[in-house]
Simulated scan of single mutants.
Amino acid sequence: MTERFEAADLTRAVQAGILQPGQEHALLAFLRRQQPDQPSFQLAHVAYYFGAVLIIGALGWLLTEAWMRIGEIALLLIAIAYMALFTLCGLGLWRRGLQIPGGLLGAVAVSLTPLAVFALQRLLGWWPEDDGLGDYHDYYVYVRGGWLGMEVATVLAGLLMLRLLPFPFIVMPLAAALWFMSMDLTDLLYGTDFSWEQRRWVSLWFGLALILASLLVDGRTRRDFAFWGYFAGLLAFWGGLTLMDSGSELGKAFYCLINLSLMGIAVALRRPLFMVFGALGVAAYLGYLSYRVFADSLLFPIVLTLIGIGLIGIGVAYQKRRETLTENLRQALPKGLLALLPALRR
């Protein structure tokens, strides 16, 4: 369990006579060097992440149509130049102690890797035109076996960037590339026989594998690399599960049970992400049941409102009692299973 210390805590220690006047500043500086950046809702941190996502969207997708008009050579040079610029700026900020903006710039550089490989493939004549592949923005929309080169390069770039800048958010573009790769590999193997139902199953199993891999990392690294792995894994797993077409009431009830299990995992691991996805799934199931009962009734919006209020109440209760709930649940688990769970983070 990781504790956070602020200047006010050490000032009280000086007032209590535990520390000598002047020692609190040196101790606080030492503790901040030892502790990695933790997720925060400070305004500056929100601005950092929002800016990084905006850059990824602009350079990786929104501007592609304009860049395509200037040719493959210019597109490749611009992509490489931006990757080098963001990497160097990220390293500079990292070494100055600004690890969040520095790491985010590293993630931006990784996200541009598919664009550089796309331009290189077109320049060398390696772009499979007969595979139904369109422009670069189709990379984020369609499943095609021809995208594999871009995805492999992104994974390698992400691993190299993690060596340079061990920042957890860099796991996100790496995980997204692996997710796309799982789809595209299946498309390459099955071809036109690869149905949308099968794609949902591939997404579900890939998400589950990524969640389990993040579980192995969780609590075993100084930085919280597991967070973004859980996030990407839950997106793939929950998205594939939710989009499946269950024609039976038993299947829908099983869907609700899985989401309740996600909420239980949130308590055991103290990971609110699982609670969010689980609560959304339970709300969807309860909304379905209320529609079945109150279809074409004025009570339907009232029931949905009550469900929403209930979920908010669950969230408030969990936030107030999460440590007690986690401790009680862990004590009830078998010792063998408890040994497999990661150490808790605050």
Rank of each mutant, 00 (worst) to 15 (best):
V171M: 06
A253H: 11
M161W: 05
M172K: 09
L216W: 11
A13E: 05
F300G: 05
A283T: 12
A13S: 13
G315Q: 09
L28R: 11
E129T: 08
V155N: 03
Q99G: 00
R69D: 13
A343G: 09
L306E: 10
L262S: 03
L337K: 13
L156W: 05
R4L: 15
V155H: 04
G229N: 03
E323S: 10
R69V: 10
S182R: 03
E65L: 08
R95G: 03
Q42K: 14
L329A: 15
R223S: 04
L54H: 13
D218P: 00
P101N: 05
Q319H: 12
L85P: 01
V217A: 09
A16S: 09
S40Q: 02
D218G: 01
E129V: 14
L76I: 03
W238R: 08
G106M: 04
G97L: 02
A13R: 13
L257Q: 13
V303Y: 10
Y318A: 03
A268D: 02
L234K: 04
Y230N: 00
L54K: 10
V282D: 11
C89A: 15
V14E: 05
V316K: 10
D9S: 10
P272T: 01
R330A: 06
L337G: 09
I56A: 06
G233D: 01
G134E: 06
A47R: 10
V282K: 04
W94I: 00
P114R: 08
G132Q: 02
Q34I: 03
A84M: 08
L77C: 11
L262H: 13
R144T: 04
L212D: 02
F237C: 07
R199E: 12
G310M: 09
C256F: 12
A26T: 14
P36D: 05
T154P: 01
Y285Q: 11
P168K: 04
R345W: 04
F194I: 01
P173A: 00
T87H: 04
Y48I: 07
I302V: 15
W94F: 01
D224L: 04
L159S: 00
G106N: 03
C256G: 07
T154G: 01
S182V: 06
G146N: 02
L280W: 07
G310L: 04
A343I: 12
A109K: 05
V143W: 06
M68W: 15
A153M: 04
A109H: 08
F294E: 03
W67V: 14
L156I: 09
L250S: 12
R12A: 15
G92F: 11
E65S: 14
E6N: 12
W67G: 07
A44M: 06
L91Q: 12
L185R: 03
G17L: 00
L19K: 06
G191H: 12
D37V: 00
G71M: 10
P301I: 13
G90L: 00
V303W: 11
A79D: 06
R12E: 15
L210P: 02
L311W: 11
P101G: 01
L243E: 14
S290A: 15
I18R: 14
W127R: 12
M83G: 07
L62H: 11
E151R: 05
